[in-house]
């Protein structure tokens, strides 16, 4: 039996969580203490097996009223995949106009997420 302490990142409350678990072929959670919501409990289970994160970045825009369109993942990606996804984002260039929610890169690096725009960028020519 193993005791692990985590800080939940689901919301700004940042609950301190203490987990009792059995590490074998498959991690088995025996008890979770400190979570104040169900989402947090789900997150803890996920975090112990396959940690997932969201990321945000920017992509250069041509002919727009902003130089960069800010972007984010529309679903969490595996923590270990972040730099692979960033490498794809870094290569990308787009042209205005761009609207919030536009999918700019579908499933980067084979992940189950899209890179979507988080800012409207108007065409300025």
């Amino acid at each position: 039996m193993l005791k692990k302490n985590l800080v939940c990142i689901v919301c700004p409350n940042g609950c301190d969580v203490e987990v009792l678990l059995e590490e074998g072929q498959k991690t088995e959670i025996l008890a979770i203490d400190g979570c104040t919501c169900d989402k947090g409990k789900e997150w803890v289970a996920q975090e112990l097996t396959r940690p997932m994160r969201t990321i945000a970045s920017g992509i250069p825009v041509e002919d727009g009223d902003f130089k960069l369109v800010s972007v984010r993942t529309d679903a969490p990606i595996p923590l270990g995949k972040i730099f692979e996804v960033m490498a794809v984002i870094k290569e990308k260039r787009v042209t205005a106009p761009v609207a919030i929610g536009d999918i700019l890169i579908p499933s980067p690096a084979g992940t189950d997420c899209n890179i979507i725009a988080t800012r409207n960028v108007a065409f300025t020519g």
């Binding site: 985590l6 800080v7 939940c8 990142i9 689901v10 919301c11 700004p12 940042g14 301190d16 994160r53 923590l79």
Partner: peptide, 12 residues
């Protein structure tokens, strides 16, 4: 700062 930011911005 918030604890979650220490976790996901530094520790990660």
């Amino acid at each position: 700062g918030l604890a979650r930011n220490v976790r996901q911005c530094l520790d990660d």
